[in-house]
Every structure is written in structure tokens, then in C-alpha cells.
Simulated scan of single mutants.
Amino acid sequence: MTLPPYADLLGLHLEPQADDAPPVLMLPFAEAVTGRPNFLHGGAIGGLLEMAAIAALYHALDQAQAQIKPINITIDFMRGGRPKETRAMGIVSRLGSRIANVEAVAWQDDRETPIASARLNCLIKRA
């Protein structure tokens, strides 16, 4: 799976999953993603959530060639991201022929205690 260049800029890594499981992305902590002292920058968390949603869409499209363009994104920040690894996973709630709705959740220590979540509407242009 090839993610947009922004994923490389953030240093995101795909974690191994079962074939049918949605991909999980991991954001390693680095000074480049620091906001206020000892916290992740909100933009880095937002970028992680967006990339997780796009990865979930590519997974749902079964690696089909498609261009994905977010139409709108709503992010809910629930708690500050601490200086440690952060993971995110996207879940496709609706996959139409041209529009997809995706949710994404980011967490650090426990998946049941998210630090942020997002809802995206994306335009899909299939090849």
C-alpha cells in the first residue's frame, strides 16, 4: 500500500495486521511532531487520523487504483497526546461509487482510551 507523501513526512509506519483487518498506522514520537512541551502537535495527530482513514479506504478498495481526496474532515481531540508512540486505525462506514465516509481513531496506550477521533467524507476517483 502506498500512502501519500505526508505519511513519510510524519514518519508513519504500517503495522502488520491480518489480511482482512483494517491497517493500523503508527506515529513514532519525535521532536518534529511536538507541539507544546511534552505533547504531540494537534496537526500531527490530525495528519495521522487522515492517513489512517486513507489507508482504510485503500484496504476497502482492495488495493484498486483510485485517487482519494478528502472533502471534509472533523476531528475531536479528547486528550493531549503524550511523548510516545501513537497509533490510529480507520473504519469505512460507507463506500459508494464516488463518495466514502470513514471514521478514524487515534490512541496511545489503550485502544479503548482514544486521544482523538475523526470523521471524513472522501471523493473517490477510480482508475
Rank of each mutant, 00 (worst) to 15 (best):
V92R: 05
G35F: 01
G81N: 03
N72M: 10
L12F: 06
M26N: 15
E85I: 13
A53V: 03
T86G: 05
D62F: 14
D62C: 15
G47C: 00
A30Q: 13
L25A: 00
L10Y: 08
A64Q: 14
L61S: 08
P70H: 08
G81D: 00
Q65S: 13
G42M: 04
A7V: 04
V92Q: 03
H13M: 14
Q63E: 11
N121D: 15
I99C: 02
R126Q: 12
A106P: 01
G35E: 01
M26G: 10
A18N: 11
L123Y: 10
D76T: 10
D76E: 13
A55L: 03
L12C: 02
R98P: 05
L25S: 05
A64E: 12
I124P: 02
T74Y: 09
V102R: 02
S93V: 14
I54G: 07
L48C: 03
L9G: 11
A106G: 07
G96F: 03
A116Q: 02
Y58A: 12
P16S: 09
P5K: 02
Y6G: 00
I91D: 13
I71D: 08
H13A: 13
I99W: 04
L25M: 03
A56K: 03
D20N: 13
D8R: 07
A127G: 13
G35T: 03
G46Q: 08
P114E: 01
P83F: 01
P16C: 04
A44K: 01
Y6H: 10
Q17L: 09
R79Q: 12
F29C: 08
Q108L: 06
P114L: 04
P23F: 06
V24K: 04
K84N: 13
G80F: 06
L14P: 09
Q17T: 12
E50Q: 11
E31C: 11
N38T: 15
N72I: 09
N72S: 12
L120A: 05
D62L: 14
I68E: 04
P114V: 06
G11C: 05
R36M: 15
L123Q: 10
Y6K: 02
W107A: 05
G46P: 00
L48W: 01
V92F: 01
I54D: 07
P70S: 02
A100M: 00
M78Y: 09
T86I: 07
P23V: 09
E31S: 14
A18V: 09
G11V: 04
V105R: 09
V105E: 10
T74M: 09
M26V: 14
L3P: 03
L61W: 06
L120K: 02
R94L: 08
Y6E: 09
T86N: 03
I99D: 05
D62H: 15
